[in-house]
């Protein structure tokens, strides 16, 4: 790991100003993703700005729903009674992620900024448009079993790796961002992520120095009846091949509202509005779930080794929906 300087910021203002002043600086919360990337020489930073002393904690019911401080750790949010009871899909997505040790360390904000597990991105011996813009993408014709079938481009088909982001996108969560000027703005998480297009190295809409300070999730009936199903190569401690975050509000056998998002198949967490729209107003039956799930992969573009995700994604949606009726 290259050497770097370190500072512990005393205020959000100090942290964001320091980051804005140095393009090679990075915030460090839990560090589980960052230190790994720096050890692998995928990222190099001149300065790490420790944000752990900033007041960005709290898991609480706000006026419109759930508010989670960006520095809360994955393990604490995953087991918090408010989250377990009212937003089970968030709890389940967190507890299906990583390992207990990593969940104790990793912050919620950092989780949302984790980078792809694409093997070509992770190995500096290969070209990669995300790591080294313009160098090429070996995944298109190489080993692409774990990579994306939705949202890819001729430059990049790297899968987004966060389970949490899939659950949060399904529930229409918003991020609170604070700028070096001290102003705050909120953005829907779904709009925060950027499709790779011709610039896969730019992954989100963060402005220079901007810091994620909180996550808010609207309360809803479909949030209370929600589920996260993660399909992977081994039973625990693995990234998703396919995952589904679903929520249903069913009254008298009829679906009043539905939320469905997929993980492991998209270059960003992939909400499938067509599936949701199909379900609303229909009886909550397995037959309808199957018909709806087929719409999820209508626009998919599979590659040599990941064609299996077309069928697996549909089955994962159906099984997840059956869990919440």
């Amino acid at each position: 790991m290259n050497n770097f300087a370190y500072t512990q910021a005393a205020s959000t203002k100090e942290a964001t100003a320091a980051k804005a002043a140095d393009k090679q600086a990075a915030f460090i919360g839990g560090g589980t993703a960052l230190i790994d990337l720096m050890k692998s020489n995928i990222e190099q930073h001149s300065l790490l700005i420790d944000i752990n002393k900033l007041s960005m904690l709290g898991i609480e019911n706000a006026a419109t729903g759930l508010r989670i401080g960006a520095l809360e750790r994955m393990s604490d949010v995953g087991e918090h009674p408010l989250v377990v009871q009212n937003y089970p899909v968030i709890s389940q997505s967190l507890l299906a992620s990583a390992s207990p040790q990593l969940r104790n360390m990793a912050s919620m904000g950092g989780n949302l900024l984790q980078r792809t597990r694409c093997g070509y991105f992770r190995d500096t011996a290969f070209p990669c448009n995300k790591r080294q813009p313009g160098s090429g993408c070996p995944a298109l014709v190489g080993d692409n079993r774990t990579l994306a079938i939705l949202g890819g481009s001729a430059s990049c088909i790297a899968t987004h790796a966060s389970d949490l982001a899939v659950a949060l996108v399904a529930l229409e969560a918003r991020l609170t961002l604070e700028s070096p000027k001290g102003t705050t703005r909120t953005v829907p998480l779904a709009d925060f992520y950027k499709l790779p297009g011709a610039t896969p190295n730019i992954e989100n809409h963060l402005q220079p120095g901007e810091l994620i300070t909180a996550i808010t999730v609207p309360a809803a009936a479909h949030a209370r009846k929600s589920h996260y199903l993660k399909v992977r190569d081994r039973a625990s401690y693995a990234y998703a091949l396919v995952s589904a975050a679903v929520g249903l509000d069913v009254q008298g056998g009829t679906i009043r509202s539905a939320r469905v998002a997929l993980g492991g198949v998209g270059t960003v967490p992939w909400r499938v509005l067509a599936v949701e729209k199909y379900l609303v107003g229909k009886p909550a039956t397995e037959e309808n779930f199957r018909a709806a799930a087929a719409l999820a992969v209508r626009d998919a573009k599979p590659y040599e080794h990941n064609k299996f995700k077309l069928e697996l994604a549909q089955r994962t949606i159906v099984r997840a929906l059956l869990e919440v009726v």
Binding site: Y6, I28, G31, S75, P100, L102, N104
Partner: peptide, 12 residues
């Protein structure tokens, strides 16, 4: 709390 010491900076 259990953590991975390999991804923890001593300074922190």
């Amino acid at each position: 709390r259990r953590v991975n010491a390999c991804l923890t900076l001593a300074v922190m």
